[in-house]
């Protein structure tokens, strides 16, 4: 915890402890932890001298911020009009089946988070499946497994290894 407080302090100092930078600070905290743990929000609030609820308000307002732990890989499926017409619901169903979770949730082994989005602005490539910012266009239910397997095989990062050892 003390360590986390210091980590947050480095990020806050980077933005000069400025109130206006709270979104940027939270973004950096999120990329550090993959989500926003409660104690880091407390640390941000106390270091910026803002009421905690104000930081919470920002963190809950934007969909980009998550207060729940997120998986190592984020799988995003576009359900915009163009992708929908080209069969995105079937792709989503397949991803749901492969991962065994509903959109917005994370697998128990903390490997994948499944999300839907309303349009990615790349309609010509639809249906699109995005894994960690990597776009996979012209997706079909058959291809989903192949793409996900590629990420399932990659060795887990340090955080994940620690989890495995402790369990």
């Amino acid at each position: 915890m003390v360590n986390d407080y210091e980590k947050v302090k480095v990020i806050v100092d980077k933005y000069g402890g400025n109130h206006d930078s709270v979104i940027a600070i939270l973004q950096d905290v999120q990329s550090e932890y993959h989500y926003l743990p409660e104690h880091t929000l407390r640390a941000v609030a106390s270091q910026l001298g803002l009421p905690l609820i104000q930081v919470c308000g920002v963190a809950t307002f934007f969909k980009a911020f998550s207060l729940k732990p997120r998986g190592e890989h984020t799988v995003t499926i576009c359900l915009g009009t163009a992708c929908h017409v080209r069969g995105a619901p079937a792709v989503l169903d397949e991803a749901r089946r492969q991962l065994g979770i509903e959109p917005g949730n994370t697998t128990d082994d903390m490997r994948f988070t499944l999300e839907t989005v309303n349009c990615l602005g790349a309609c010509a490539l639809g249906p699109i499946l995005v894994v960690d910012g990597e776009y996979h266009g012209q997706m079909s239910p058959g291809k989903v497994k192949k793409v996900l397997n590629k990420f399932k095989k990659t060795p887990g990062d340090k955080r994940h290894e620690e989890l495995e050892v402790s369990s």
Binding site: E38, L41, P51, L52, I53, Q54, V55, C56, G57, T60, F61, F62
Partner: peptide, 19 residues
């Protein structure tokens, strides 16, 4: 004091305390 604030957005916006 400022312990109250808005959390969430759109239809799920509500007045709450932190966490």
């Amino acid at each position: 004091v400022g312990v109250l604030g808005f959390v969430g957005r759109g239809t799920s916006r509500r007045v709450a305390t932190a966490f």
